[in-house]
Design a binder for these strands. Structure first.
Lengths: 360, 360
DNA sequence: CGATAGACTGCAATCGATTGCAAAACGCTA
DNA sequence: TAGCGTTTTGCAATCGATTGCAGTCTATCG
């Protein structure tokens, strides 16, 4: 079917081994034969068979990226970055979708390792620590965006504490005192860290934490809707909502739309992670950018280094952080210092006589 | 490192060939040895090495899906469907991003074939017909969403003529007579077909085609913006715009927002292909659904059949159509039979925002 | 009881590359 | 020209499976 090394060797009247050495440039062949073989190979249209090569070398030139879904714009960006980077090095990216489901993740991991991938970048569910740990012995692995606490794998994380802090502080600086937070599950790194950033910002501003303003939930639009309703139904609803759970954003938008709540006039809205349409939305939605592009690039850097290091890459550093950045658009508004919400024209007034302060 | 067939054979005290036959279930081994070997293999945690197997069999259990990008929600859906389907058959999906760029497409195709993929579903750019045709001799290929006219490959298409017809007719039924169309490049199947559906619907309604209302352009948000401006700047602007170029939607939304044009009060908007946020958008955006899920499923069906047919799958049918469907939401409005636009070149409205009454 | 078909099993080749080892070719010097 | 050290090259094994062919074993039948 296709031209094999044997064909090339035959035409060049040399042995297969010589052909191999010449073409892979091991430097063990004379300049002349090397050039001659390169030429012949090109003329014949020879392309090495990665499968055959892989069998012998144990490599596949395949690098897998395992993410939860493709709906999340950050994952899209990351996939595109990883693909581009790898392609430049003539690796092929295996993009896999794990659905944030431990079982699927586990299955996929097994398949991938069977296929002898050369490296893996994974957004772990956090439920397959042992398996990941075991696999890490055979394949260089880098975790992305989430840490799997059961492992000590090299991990590239967004600086979520900082991002959440920046976002919250921004809202505070705009005069908001009652800031609702919708955040991810607390058994995920990002969920916990974003909450901590929120708390720190409020703390620095001397604003007590009001438990009723903080909602943590699963990563789904429906969660966003539910949490949003709860926030709006409070006797003293927030004047701003910080949606730090990316998947929840749509739900929040739906609820505010349903209730005819004008953003940012009635309610300021700040989201975590960008989506391509946020800037076209009306009003354009302000965000905390988690730096997906940088994250992906760093992850690739780390992975490549590991792949080259061939097992002895324990340089000590196990966690990398990529800075977050505030992107101001039009969904947050400065309010008078009363800190009262405009949502219910009824009564509500200043002072942080909020319920009680909370612990985490 | 990992358990090989040899190990299993050794433990079972049989030859490697027997082990192979027993485990692959060729029916050439006795019931007893088969069961025994299966058990031993399981106990030892044996997993066949796809690379080694692939070398011999010429198969890789890898099926590639080559799409233009991951931003397009249709592609996301398709990717997830394909992944799920393939996984159930223990194939691994290779998701590749071609960027609608012929060069990249060509490179990727080469790499994929090198890796001896067992099948390929591709959204062709249309510029690599010869290459695709050549590859089709080695690998089962199914085209998706677009046809490559230079080939006679089996192709699964959305019923774009019908979809565009449905959409246009819907607008006509709502009383619109001046309907702007923003459509994809005319050197693509979908671009041409959608235009034809538009023309047919207008024709049936006895509405003459006004060339100034039709804009075809590249698949990019910027195109949408440009075209939209042109439409709005007409001395007699349209009362409805049908955005049949998916990527252009964002641009159109931006322009209408910039100009404070209320949808659907001042302008009805109908889009082609869904995006997850369309239904949360305010107003929720009506669409013509191209049936991404069905398309993907059908493509997988066809591909699998070809893969099984092993070369003789020429059953004559080369083109499949998946029906389109109108999804009415809130971005299209009935207008008086005058068909005149409410948009006046000069008069820009001030507080247009909260004027809308939420449906549903 | 021996012959023979049929069911199992094992040997060895094969897929297409890479690579250790040894032989061959080459270049230099004496 | 012989001697010796370097390059270059080829042979053959190897990676982990599959598979054609031939040999072994069992069972059946005359």
């Amino acid at each position: 079917m296709s031209v094999t090394l044997k064909d090339v060797a035959q035409v060049a009247r040399v042995s297969v081994s010589t052909a191999s050495r010449a073409l892979t440039g091991t430097g063990l062949t004379s300049e002349r034969t090397q050039q001659r073989l390169t030429r012949i190979a090109r003329e014949l249209g020879y392309r090495p068979n990665p499968i055959a090569r892989g069998l012998k070398t144990g490599q596949s030139r395949l690098v897998a990226l395992l993410v939860h879904n493709l709906t999340n714009a950050s994952f899209q960006v990351m996939a595109e970055v990883v693909q581009a980077r790898l392609k430049a090095l003539s690796y092929q990216m295996l993009l896999c979708i794990g659905g944030d489901d431990p079982q699927q993740e586990s299955d996929t991991l097994t398949t991938l390792v069977d296929h002898r991938i050369d490296g893996l970048i994974v957004v772990p569910t956090g439920k397959n620590g042992p398996q990941l740990k075991a696999l890490a012995k055979d394949v260089p692995i880098v975790c992305l965006v989430r840490r799997d606490d059961a492992t000590d794998l090299e991990t590239v994380l967004a600086d979520d504490p900082q991002g959440a802090y920046l976002g919250t502080r921004h809202l505070i600086e705009l005069g908001h005192k009652r800031i609702g937070l919708i955040v991810g599950r607390q058994d995920t790194t990002s969920g916990r860290e974003r909450l901590s950033g929120y708390i720190r910002a409020l703390g620095e501003a001397g604003i007590p934490i009001d438990d009723t303003l903080v909602h943590a939930g699963h990563f789904e639009p429906e969660t966003g809707a539910t949490c949003c309703r709860k926030l709006l139904d409070l006797s003293r609803p927030p004047s701003a909502i910080f949606v730090a759970n990316h998947e929840a954003t749509l739900g929040v938008l739906r609820v505010t739309a349903e209730r005819n709540i004008a953003i940012p006039d009635d309610l300021s809205l700040l989201c975590y992670e960008d989506m391509p349409w946020f800037e076209w939305h009306r009003p354009a939605i302000s965000i905390v950018d988690n730096g997906a592009r940088d994250l992906a690039n760093l992850a690739v850097d780390r992975l490549l280094q590991r792949m080259e290091a061939k097992g002895n890459g324990n340089d000590g550093v196990r966690e990398y952080r990529v800075g977050a950045r505030l992107v101001q658009r039009d969904s947050c508004r400065r309010i008078e210092s009363t800190g009262s919400a405009k949502i219910k024209p009824s009564a509500s007034k200043s002072k942080s006589s909020a319920a009680k302060s909370a612990k985490v």
